[in-house]
Every structure is written in structure tokens, then in C-alpha cells.
Design a protein around this nucleic acid. Structure first.
Length: 420
DNA sequence: TCTGGGGTCCTAGGACCC
DNA sequence: TCTGGGGTCCTAGGACCC
């Protein structure tokens, strides 16, 4: 048996823990650059605000209903996420963090009524110890646990825990109530195609012809079908599998039109990616850079491009990464456009040891020492206390973030204050 | 005016090998 | 005119997830 623990309206819930004044108002959290809605309180959902909807489209509704509109505060959310997972780990033998607000929990050894009881206890303690409300779905496979979670959330006044029954009749009845597009692993494209073939519920999908699914869709879709039937295809895998790539990118606060600004942004993203790389003890063998203009705007000339190159030797040294990134960026830069976004990606990551080359003159030991000092200072004194000149000082292109709440749990100078 | 960021996996097709 | 069979590796693009 698997359980999926999923935080309700996670970013909004984090904000509400620290700000009682927004507990009984509709709340939304906006994406980076305050661009679109990425989290909504229940009230906001009820008022028709869509996930991913551009913020400017909602302005009137926000005003009319006295919304609290917040920039995203990922520092806070990540820290709260860790706290929730810590509680889960204390109460369960195996926990697999799946995203910032979800974790699969292995319920091996529990059965019958015990399972529900245990799930309720988890839920109660997470709320009590972190302030974050969660819902728990239970099922024989991860896909079914996801469905259980959906059922738990639908029943708003219910206990926040739901289980997809193991016996066939109960399972089929539960699946019949779920739209095919809401099944984990079935996105917009496949949902549309399935519906046009008469497969409109999770039950239809569970009982679809497997050969057809395999041929018309893919092995991935087939696994989903089998999981809906109760056959485990997606294991609680030997966690922490090593990551495959690191991406850092941002939209600009205002359009970028000269290479200086662009190069600074690329250098800054590269710096961030390098920090991440070293924090995880990895080196990269490949780097790519991309940039594009506003892809929504049809009235302006559009341009998008990317380029990549091998890193020789493999490295996590920020200056080396910046050098490669800037060369790549320069090679795809074209004058005369208003750029909207740029970013970099590191791939072919390994834990080393670094491949040695015959003519390698790079001083690895020296670089390691420098990076170590740099990282320690920036961890202790705050990001960017020391940074490379290539990433600029003015940074007029930086993203907008006008309504961010304090980083209550990670910065001494932003702690909550109680007034006497 | 204003539309996020960070990931994973699979597949098809081309280049190349014998 | 006729043009095999089996394989690997790489990349771009498409699908999905949160």
C-alpha cells in the first residue's frame, strides 16, 4: 500500500501560517516576475481564478474581492517543505519526496483500519507541528494513491484521508468518478485524444485495450493503465537517484536589448547553477545556453536559439563555467531584438572523479579551494556577498518581485516580531 | 504593458558500423 | 530495374510532472 501526502494549496498555506490576517481572505501567490498565478486559496479557486492564469487578467477580481496577492517566496516554501517531510519521516519507515509539496509514503505493514487511522494521525501531527494542512490518498499503486488523494480533496468537509478500495468493485466505483484527464500521467494532449476515442474516465482507461494504448500512445501510458488496475509498475525506487540536469533561467524584469545586460544575466544564472552543482558534489560535462524574445507577442520580431558545448575538463568551477557560457551566449546573440528570457542548463552530471586529460593544465586543487571559500562566505553572509564581476552590479534586468513576504524561517533579520 | 521555473523519460530518425 | 539484416549511438522534439 502506498500513501500520497499532498499539502493543500501549499504556497498559500505557507503564507497563512505566518500571517493570520490573510486566513479569511482569498489569497494568490504569483510566479517569478509576478507574472501568473501559481497558487490559489480555496476562495480564489471558487472565484474562478485559474492555475497559471496571467495576473493582469485577474486584476479586477483581485480588487473587487480584496485578495491578498503575493510574490512567490521560494526560500520560505522550501524550508516549510523540509519541515513537513521531516514529520512524515518521523512517522513512517520510507518517504519519497516527489515534489516541493508532495511525498509518497510506504505503508508496508499496515492494513485494514490501521491504515486509515495511521494516515489521520500523520495528518493531525503535520498540521500541529508545521501549520500546514495536508491530504492523504491511499491505494495499491502510486497512481491509485494519487486518485485517493484527489478523492480526499474533493470531500472538503471530510477527514482529509481517502482510500481507493482494494477489492475490484470498490476500486472500479472509485475510478468511475474520476475524469481521464485527472489521472496522474495523463496530460492535456493525451486526455483530449483519449476522450475522442470514448475513454473519458479513469475506469475506461483502466479497462482499455492495452495493445492499443501501447501502440497509439507509449509505454508510459501503458504503465499508467496497469497501475490503475492495481499492478505496481512504478516502484518506490532506490531513492535519491542522481539528477540528470540543472537548469537556471529567469524572465527579465524588463526587455533586454544589449549584450552587456544579457551577458550579466547569463553569468548570474551560471553562477547559481555552479553553486547548485557543488552543493550536490557533482561536475558537469556539458553546458548549454538559451535565450528568446517574448513568444506571446506577435507584433514584434521573434527569436529563440540555444547552443551547447562539452566541458573539457569536466568541471564545477564557476569561472570556467562562465567562460563557456558567455562564449555560447555570444554565438547565438543577435542585435536588434527585445529579449525576454535567458538561461543555462548543465547536463551529463557525475560525481567524478574528474577525467584526466593529457594536456590538462587546469589547477583543480586550487579551484576547489577557491570555490569552497566562496561558497562558505555566501552561505554564511547571504547569496551574492561575493560574486563575479561578469554578473554585473546594476542588474536593471532583474525580475520584479514586489510583494514578497519575509523569509521568516531562514533569515535573522526577517524573523516574525511580536508587538508589546 | 502585463503570460514561471525546473525537472524526467521516451521515441523517431539519422549517421554510422559490420 | 533490381538494393539485407542487424545493431549502436546521438539528438531533437514531444509528452508528462509539480
Amino acid at each position: 500500500m502506498y500513501a500520497l501526502a499532498d499539502c493543500n494549496n501549499f504556497y498559500v498555506s505557507c503564507e497563512r501560517v505566518f500571517d493570520p490576517a490573510i486566513r479569511d481572505r482569498p489569497v494568490v501567490v504569483l510566479s517569478n516576475n509576478d507574472g501568473c498565478v501559481v497558487a490559489r486559496s480555496q476562495e480564489a479557486k471558487d472565484l474562478g481564478i485559474g492555475m497559471g492564469q496571467p495576473a493582469f487578467e485577474c486584476r479586477n477580481v483581485f480588487r473587487r474581492h480584496r485578495f491578498a496577492v503575493l510574490s512567490s517566496n521560494y526560500t520560505l516554501y522550501e524550508d516549510m517543505s523540509n519541515r513537513v517531510f521531516q514529520v512524515l519521516q518521523q512517522l513512517s519507515p520510507a518517504v519519497e519526496a516527489y515534489s516541493i509539496d508532495e511525498a509518497f509514503v510506504d505503508l508496508h505493514g499496515f492494513d485494514g483500519r490501521d491504515i486509515i487511522e495511521h494516515a489521520r494521525r500523520i495528518r493531525r501531527l503535520v498540521l500541529q507541528w508545521t501549520g500546514i494542512p495536508i491530504s492523504i490518498g491511499i491505494g495499491a499503486t502510486r497512481t491509485l494513491a494519487k486518485i485517493g488523494n484527489r478523492l480526499a480533496k474533493q470531500d472538503r468537509t471530510g477527514p482529509g484521508v481517502a482510500r481507493v478500495p482494494q477489492h475490484d468493485d470498490g476500486r472500479r466505483a472509485a475510478l468511475a468518478t474520476v475524469d481521464v484527464g485527472d489521472v496522474w500521467g495523463i496530460g492535456r494532449r493525451w486526455g483530449r485524444r483519449l476522450r475522442s476515442e470514448g475513454v473519458s474516465t479513469a475506469l475506461h482507461l483502466a479497462e482499455a485495450d492495452t495493445t492499443w494504448i501501447r501502440d497509439a500512445f507509449s509505454i508510459v501510458a501503458l504503465r499508467t493503465v496497469l497501475e490503475l488496475q492495481g499492478k505496481v509498475c512504478i516502484e518506490m525506487d532506490d531513492m535519491p537517484s542522481t539528477r540528470r540536469s540543472i537548469i537556471r533561467s529567469r524572465s527579465f524584469g524588463r526587455p533586454v536589448r544589449n549584450w552587456i545586460d544579457m551577458s550579466e544575466a547569463i553569468a548570474m544564472h551560471t553562477t547559481r547553477a555552479g553553486e547548485k552543482l557543488r552543493a550536490e558534489g557533482l561536475v558537469a560535462a556539458m553546458i548549454s545556453v538559451f535565450m528568446h524574445t517574448n513568444l506571446y507577442n506577435e507584433h514584434e520580431p521573434r527569436y529563440a536559439n540555444s547552443a551547447s558545448t562539452e566541458l573539457v575538463p569536466w568541471t564545477s568551477d564557476t569561472p570556467s563555467l562562465i567562460r563557456s557560457a558567455l562564449r555560447l551566449g555570444r554565438s547565438i546573440w543577435r542585435d536588434g531584438y527585445r529579449y525576454k528570457k535567458a538561461g543555462i542548463r548543465l547536463t551529463e552530471l557525475t560525481t567524478g572523479p574528474i577525467q584526466q586529460y593529457l594536456f590538462d593544465e587546469f589547477d583543480h586543487a586550487r579551484s576547489a579551494r577557491t570555490m569552497d571559500v566562496l561558497d562558505r562566505i555566501n552561505t554564511r553572509m547571504g547569496a551574492d556577498t561575493i560574486h563575479y564581476a561578469a554578473s554585473g552590479i546594476r542588474r536593471g534586468w532583474q525580475m520584479r518581485q514586489n510583494r514578497r513576504s519575509p523569509r521568516y524561517t531562514t533569515r535573522w533579520d526577517e524573523l516574525m516580531r511580536a508587538r508589546a
